[in-house]
Design a protein around this nucleic acid. Structure first.
Lengths: 340, 340
DNA sequence: CTGAAAGCGCTTACAG
DNA sequence: CTGAAAGCGCTTACAG
């Protein structure tokens, strides 16, 4: 049943041509006559010949494969990014092999080794939480395999990166609250060992300063994972504060949603009493009532941009490796939770 | 910078051994002496040798790669399934190459061809909407590449399948409404050209019959995609009905959520006036208020089960291909939207 | 426009 | 316990 695969050699025998000629004809090589090409294509079709890409990859040292490492596939942000990666790669003739690091440094290293062995043409990666330095990426660089980081990117490592303007986005979100008349604006922050959440806190503070608002540390609440449950805790903390905020910029949509729900239960009106802004434009932001003002974080576009940059690096003949950082512009989506 | 990869031959020269011996030593072949193995492993480590898996795959005709085709990656159900696939495959030493069919039959066929050429060891697939027959899978079967379908599986094609008990789940959901005292139970149905949604409608009707409830066609509303917006339309239709339902079983969570929201705006109390049950246990079901009773559709476990079955087929030596259908048991998760 | 030859880096049946 | 040899199915520089 197996092993009945047809090879170039079989076609060659059938047509009394050499395998070289068959190979070239199928690649539409200019040196081959049109009549030969037609004969070859016809018989290939008839016999159902399909080229063995592994043999070709092996010979050419080019696999047309991109390795992708994400912390988890089932996080909406990443599944959107992967979708963008697959879509762009597919249209360019590349395949995508996917791995979850589960935020484990050990696993990240293992995966990198596999990717080297598999001779992928390039790697796209969003770093795991445990990853504090990038020693393990040096070898893959030395092998000449292009690398693009997205979202969670290294700071101490010269590399291709796709990011969004987190600081500016947070600034705009906060400014939006200010312009809507909020006087005491709180912030629910993510882990400050992660750059993007540090940037969001920075953006918040920058906006307050710019408008001559005091920075009130009692209005800034810190979380570990920005989980829904942590959001509930934060909301309750705000409720027990002496002075409650009249606007809150949350570093993601989950915490924003939990705040909305806790506050509404406490008979606090949103947006009238407290205006809320989230971050990420998760599907739930369009479903929760009131609909949530948030930042579109361009996950799909990040995937596309990463793949575009990577493929350019793969296909450029230049011997030296350049490093490029592309910053995608986010978008403040104003919905009912903040508009008054 | 490139092409400095170390090969077996290099190691062999360094140690005055043959490449055969190096190869065997690295595979921990029993015929090789321990001392030799140690020497080989030591120098491999020192020189940073990593085997070229492409060469190995080519030689062994085994790629340790599983091809996965899903309609879309960014649908939560599929990203969960993929997560299960990747997790299980990784632990078994397989890699996962992923494709989106975008529900296009043409693309599904293209992808299958790529997977054949890439010599994947097996394929896991959830059929696209356009796919009505399975002619295009016959060739891959003939090549001896094992195939496992999940969720949306073919009916006219003998193959390995992973499914959930849709009919029974729908039966239990409907029965739950009955037992909670609902007298007029509606159903929001998915496209009836898709088997799983047909089964859910069937389960609903079966439960009604079992408990001697009449089947009132005016209470069954049909949608194309079970989208949030269609759910809103259905809810409005129910509101304009002469007699409103006092319980609704929705074929997915999105429509259930939209019904909850529309009804609450119309001052209809949930679950007191109308009890709602959804299907899929999407993250939103735990966030919407009241929390949504729903069916856990075991997406992650489907991915795992599909991969487990596939790998068994790949690694079993038997020449004949067996077909197996595995039905995963779902779970009714009772939350506030239906409990009274 | 076509062909012969070499070789990509492994693995493995065979021989010793 | 180790080695020599063949070969997986392509591609491509070289020759004509």
């Amino acid at each position: 049943m197996k092993n009945n695969r047809i090879t170039l050699k079989d076609l060659a025998k059938d047509l009394n041509l050499s395998p070289s000629t068959i190979s070239r004809a199928l690649q539409n090589h200019p040196a081959i006559s049109d009549s030969t090409k037609k004969r070859v294509q016809k018989i290939a079709e008839e016999l159902g010949f399909t080229p063995n890409s592994i043999a070709s990859s092996f010979r050419k040292k080019k696999t047309q494969t991109i390795g992708v490492i994400v912390p988890r596939i089932d996080i909406h942000f990443h599944s959107l990014a992967i979708s963008g990666i697959e879509e762009f790669a597919y249209n360019k003739g590349y395949n995508v092999t996917i791995f979850q690091s589960k935020d484990s440094l050990k696993r990240e290293k293992e995966i990198l080794k596999i990717l080297q062995n598999k001779m992928v043409d390039g790697v796209i990666i969003c770093l795991g939480i445990e990853t504090k330095n990038c020693e393990h990426f040096k070898k893959i660089n030395k092998l000449g395999i292009p690398l693009v980081f997205y979202d969670r990117v290294p700071t101490d490592f010269d590399a291709n990166k796709i990011v969004i303007n987190d600081l500016e986005s947070a600034y705009l979100a906060t400014e939006h609250l200010i312009k809507n008349g909020c006087k005491r604006i709180g912030h629910i922050a993510g882990s400050q060992s992660t750059d993007i959440f540090k940037a969001r806190l920075d953006g918040y503070k920058t906006a307050l300063k710019k408008y001559n608002f005091p920075i009130d540390e009692s209005l800034i609440l810190y979380t570990n994972n920005l989980s829904y449950d942590e959001g509930v805790q934060c909301a309750e903390k705000y409720l027990s504060n002496e002075q409650q905020p009249d606007g809150i910029f949350c570093a993601n949509d989950y915490t924003a949603v939990s705040v909305i729900q806790v506050f509404r239960k406490a008979e606090i009106k949103i947006p009238e009493d407290v205006a809320i802004v989230g971050f990420s434009n998760y599907p739930i932001s369009k479903i929760i009532e009131p609909h949530l003002t948030t930042i579109n974080d361009r996950a799909f576009q990040m995937g596309e941009a990463a793949t575009k940059l990577l493929i350019r690096q793969i296909e450029e003949k230049d011997d030296f490796i350049k490093s490029e950082t592309i910053t995608l512009q986010t978008e403040l989506i104003i919905r009912e939770s903040s508009f008054r």
